[in-house]
């Protein structure tokens, strides 16, 4: 069953001295219970805005359109009071910088206790629940970590503590926005491992936001690629990484793979790259957002936006090449 459905989410920020900023231009995604989805996109593509919409965060004065459904029930329009309530109960969000949520003056157990308390646990249960959460995020031995202050933790440990805080409310979906982007790859691998077991043990769904396609292969069930505020390709991980449908995703994977193919023996060999840059949020365009950079574009691409096409077993794509 679909746990959460986001339909045609559009978010436009009104800025004082600029044109309106279109952070999301109609993003749709369905998340199944117990599923790990990687959201892959370059900076400015709208990933964080999408995460905030799901988590029910306030989007300071932005104009929001679209619907969210949680377990089949309508949950109100995006950015409304009711969506914030559901978000607060069922969906937890973790960001790139643990330091933003950790209080430097509190021991781990005190920080966690505050979160546990806020979610209807009796006084007697608090200590036990704190211990359990530290165990869940593998901060072991829990007694020792409970007494530590944030500055006594490594970057990876701080991130684990912030994950424990997010799990305090018993969420069904955890949205992770570039959680490992400032960590080294070994620590990143440990955190991926942690989320894999959380999913296995507790059946939580994970929305894993990242800009690095090389790290999601053995982790995510599906990959959703975001470009200029829309999901332009969604499919099973191996398909998206190894035989992508959308020309942008194909080019992106060529970039990624040429950076790790180390066997060419001639110096001066060039990496695969994509000319130009993605449109920024201030631009408006009628047709396909990738058309200006696309090697396979047709005459119509600049004028007509592509329709969403489902391909048998390989997922969905928004590109004229797949329209029927």
């Amino acid at each position: 069953m679909a746990l959460l459905t986001a339909e045609n989410i559009q978010v436009t920020f009104q800025t004082r001295d600029h044109a309106p900023s279109h952070a999301l231009r109609g993003a749709s995604l369905t998340i199944q219970a117990g599923e790990i989805i990687a959201i892959l996109g370059e900076s400015g593509s709208g990933k964080s805005t999408f995460a905030k919409v799901l988590a029910g965060a306030r989007l300071g004065g932005a104009q929001c359109v679209g619907t969210l459904r949680f377990k089949g029930g309508q949950w109100g329009s995006v950015g409304s009071r009711s969506s914030a309530d559901v978000g607060a109960r069922g969906i937890a969000m973790i960001g790139q910088q643990a330091s933003l949520v950790l209080n430097p003056f509190l021991r781990a157990r005190t920080q966690l206790a505050e979160f546990v308390q806020a979610h209807g646990v009796t006084r007697q249960q608090i200590a036990g629940r704190v211990h359990e959460l530290l165990e869940v995020v593998r901060l072991r031995p829990a007694e020792r970590y409970a007494a530590k202050y944030p500055h006594q933790l490594s970057g990876g440990e701080k991130q684990r503590l912030s994950i424990a805080m997010a799990l305090a409310c018993g969420p069904e979906i955890v949205v992770c926005d570039e959680v490992t982007s400032s960590l080294d790859t070994v620590t990143e691998a440990e955190i991926l491992e942690l989320f894999s077991s959380l999913r296995a043990e507790r059946r939580v769904s994970v929305l894993w936001i990242t800009h690095n396609p090389l790290r999601v292969r053995n982790f995510a069930d599906r990959v959703a690629v975001m470009y200029a505020g829309r999901f332009i390709e969604i499919g099973p991980t191996a398909n998206v990484l190894d035989s992508p449908l959308h020309p942008y995703v194909a080019e992106l994977m060529r970039c990624a793979k040429s950076g790790i193919s180390v066997h060419e023996d001639r110096k001066g060999a060039r990496l695969a790259s994509i000319p130009g840059a993605a449109p920024d949020a201030f631009e408006s365009f009628a047709g396909c957002s990738f058309a200006p950079r696309c090697a396979e574009k047709r005459d119509t691409c600049a004028q007509k936006a592509p329709e969403n096409a489902s391909t048998e077993g390989r997922g969905e794509v928004e590109c004229v090449l797949y329209e029927r």
């Binding site: 800009h211 970039c255 990624a256 790259s273 994509i274």
Partner: peptide, 8 residues
């Protein structure tokens, strides 16, 4: 930088 820009 993003991957496609990194390569450029």
């Amino acid at each position: 930088l993003d991957l496609s820009i990194k390569a450029q």
